[in-house]
Design a protein around this nucleic acid. Structure first.
Lengths: 226, 226
DNA sequence: CGGTCCGTTGATCATGCTCAAACGGAGTGG
DNA sequence: CCACTCCGTTTGAGCATGATCAACGGACCG
């Protein structure tokens, strides 16, 4: 009995770790899996069997045109949920940007849970909504913002999301950033160089992936408010 | 008693008209309202009090940058639901493209209904999902497609959605189309002229807003498949 | 130490934007 | 009924932003 109680508590904790609160205790199986850099986690149009949370690393989701042009929809950092589709099939391909460990939860489990537990259902809707909000904001960026505004918005967003102190370490390549912002790698590189020359950002260590935001206000000013 | 039953039946029918099926009968108040061409139905960041369905006319939803640049997120035609945010505030401004009549339903009513009725909840989720899908596909268009591909995709989509026969009547202006596709009115106009010159489409009547798709295959070929 | 990958920088190009003018319905008033 | 204006659209000419093509350099890795 004691064992069963402990096990239920552990599962409840795992569920809570997944960012999903429940009004009652439920048995939910949570597994972990690690993907090497660049490998596919799930493909577009595959059945959406699991919902994922990034435990360690970073994930990108993208769509492709037949000739190889790529649009990255979002980057998912530690703690973020992804693969939550509310549909039978995934609508993006998900890949590990770097070596990445994810937690998995069966979609059917969560949906079944949502049927009986309004709190879980509400949580799922909230997550879908924040997905939607991000994508909607990205529409405006892709449709109407200049290259510099896009890069500034990206750095600002990453800075807010990933930094505790002033340094952020971008796990993704210039190509990934370019495909996220609807630009080329050269344009992204030039914009970042410009920001550096203007004293808005600086680089830390030997790699180009650690960026310090020196002038946060100037960065946000470059990204036109909406 | 008979009166009450009839009233319940009427309400159930209205709910069904709204595209929301319910497992049981519920009292749902449905109102209609008509907006003049160009008027605002709701504004960005306003409380999302109602959910809407287009009964007659057409609606556009948009976001603005501070300097007036506009991104239209979607056009809603007859039968379409809009304003379904799953959040406290609207994230787009909605305006009537032409004189438009909408059906309204209180968001709280629907949400309350969804709490107890899993079928309603599922329907709401399905609608949110199709919103999400449309926006995600639009990301790819705005980030990676050429002007001609965008216009072709737009005409194809409108043709599929609004046409019974071969003629579609576009209710929105070139400016609206441009702001939807992330282009300028001149570029949209040139692309449409090009399609006309190439014999892919033709114009009906005296106005420029009735378009006949002559070569559906060639139109879809111009929009790269994804 | 050679090779590869990734990012930067430079030079040129092209797609789509800007500016400008003309066109053509729709509506209005003489 | 016709002239007039207004407004949205088309078309043209030149321009600019960002793409393309190319070369270089540093980091990493065998």
């Amino acid at each position: 009995m004691l064992v069963r109680t402990t096990e239920a508590a552990r599962r409840a904790n795992l569920l809570r770790d997944f960012g999903i609160t429940s009004s009652t205790d439920h048995a939910v199986s949570l597994n972990e899996f690690t993907y090497k850099k660049g490998t596919e986690i799930f493909g577009e149009k595959e059945p959406a069997k699991y919902i994922y949370q990034v435990k360690l690393g970073a994930v990108r989701t993208h769509k492709l045109l037949s000739d190889g042009r790529r649009q990255i929809g979002a980057f998912h950092l530690i703690g973020d949920i992804f693969g939550l589709e509310n549909a039978a099939l995934h609508r993006f391909t998900a890949e590990a940007v770097v070596e990445t460990t994810v937690r998995l939860i069966l979609r059917t489990t969560l949906e079944h849970l949502a049927e009986s537990d309004a709190v879980v259902a509400r949580n799922l809707r909230t997550m879908t909504t924040s997905n939607l909000q991000h994508v909607e904001d990205h529409l405006l960026l892709l449709g109407r913002k200049t290259a510099m505004e896009r890069v500034a918005a990206f750095l600002h967003d990453m800075s807010v999301r990933s930094t505790a102190a002033g340094v952020m370490s971008l796990p993704m390549s210039r190509r990934d950033i370019a495909d996220y912002l609807g630009l080329t790698i050269e344009t992204v590189s030039r914009a970042i160089s410009q920001l550096h020359a203007d004293g808005v950002i600086s680089f830390r260590s030997n790699t180009q992936r650690d960026i310090v935001v020196l002038d946060h206000d100037r960065l946000t000013a470059l990204d036109k408010p909406n």
